[in-house]
Design a protein around this nucleic acid. Structure first.
Length: 283
DNA sequence: ATGTGTTCCTGTCCGC
DNA sequence: TGCGGACAGGAACACA
């Protein structure tokens, strides 16, 4: 579930609980997620202060006072729950652990942060802060779509000559970091580009529009997450899920939402993933 | 180098 | 109500 906007929403939800706070203890309830958890992770976290919570692509990065950084990826089904008291703002009782609560952080301020991941495609690692960018999971990532390194000139350069469908190219984290299946579908719809179109065969002008709508769709989703954050916290402390109004994603068979378009949303499979698009207005 | 298909894991939903 | 199959927001990996 978590693409860049969801991960950013989780990060923002964790900032008031974790940033500047001490990790009193960490309980590792199973030894592995997608890969084995870091050696002696609980010992290396206990007593450390979280200096800063950052995000790179879909990774949450917690810089610690020990000089190490905890890298967290939510995979497909990873979620984070916050409970416990902090200035009365998180006055939610600790729920009993579920079988998918794999790592539990007990903060010095009384909050509890639980990493839950049914499918266990998530991951954690703990490395020197100076080595985060060169970590094997992060080193090949393309630019942040909301950062300065991503614009129409960059994107055009990366798509030039590529014969792969634009859908696959945008899902490639080396091209641009943080997009997933939902937001690629949404961005292509807004840009009026058929997901099957060869990446290198999109006109310069339309590539410019694409870069622009990618930023817009992500920004809107982050804003929506921010506005729903408080509601979700009040509900059950769960971070990372919020309602979106998608224009095509998961809307197979329904009317296209492009103004004046009479098309019907279709679903096709591209490299094993569902693509939702409108054949009438995406060319 | 590029592009495609498989794989990890569990939960949910839909049709019979 | 049970059961089988399809499918799920990721991405590393093996292979053409």
């Amino acid at each position: 579930m978590p693409e860049l906007p969801e991960v950013e929403t989780v990060r923002r939800g964790l900032v008031p609980v974790m940033e500047g706070a001490v990790i009193a203890g960490a309980e590792v309830r199973r030894p592995d997620l997608r890969w084995p958890l870091p050696e002696r992770m609980a010992d290396r976290l206990a007593g450390r202060t979280v200096l800063r919570l950052r995000r790179r692509s879909k990774y949450i990065l917690a810089d610690l006072s020990s000089g190490e950084t905890l890298i967290v990826h939510l995979g497909m089904s990873g979620r984070i729950l916050v409970s416990g008291a902090l200035q009365g703002r998180f006055a939610r009782a600790h729920a009993p652990h579920s079988s998918h609560d794999h790592v539990v952080f007990s903060m010095g301020n009384g909050a509890r942060v639980t990493f839950n991941d049914a499918r266990r495609f998530g991951a954690m690692d703990l490395v020197p802060t100076a080595e985060v960018e060169s970590h094997w999971l992060l080193r090949a990532l393309g630019p942040e779509p909301l950062g300065n390194g991503f614009d129409e000139v960059y994107l055009a350069g990366r798509l030039r000559g590529r014969r792969t469908p634009i859908k696959a190219a945008l899902l490639d984290q080396r091209v641009v970091a943080g997009l997933g299946n939902i937001y690629v579908c949404e961005a292509l719809h807004r840009a009026g580009i058929n997901p099957k179109r060869q990446a290198g065969r999109i006109g310069t002008h339309r590539v410019g529009a694409l870069a622009s709508v990618i930023r817009a769709v992500l920004t809107e989703a982050i804003d929506a997450g921010g506005s729903s954050l408080r509601d979700y916290r009040q509900a059950d402390g769960e971070l990372g899920y919020f309602q979106h109004t998608f224009r095509v994603y998961d809307r197979e068979g329904t009317a296209c939402r492009t103004p004046d378009c009479t098309g019907t949303v279709r679903r096709i499979v591209q490299s094993g993933r569902s693509s939702f698009y409108c054949p009438a207005c995406q060319r």
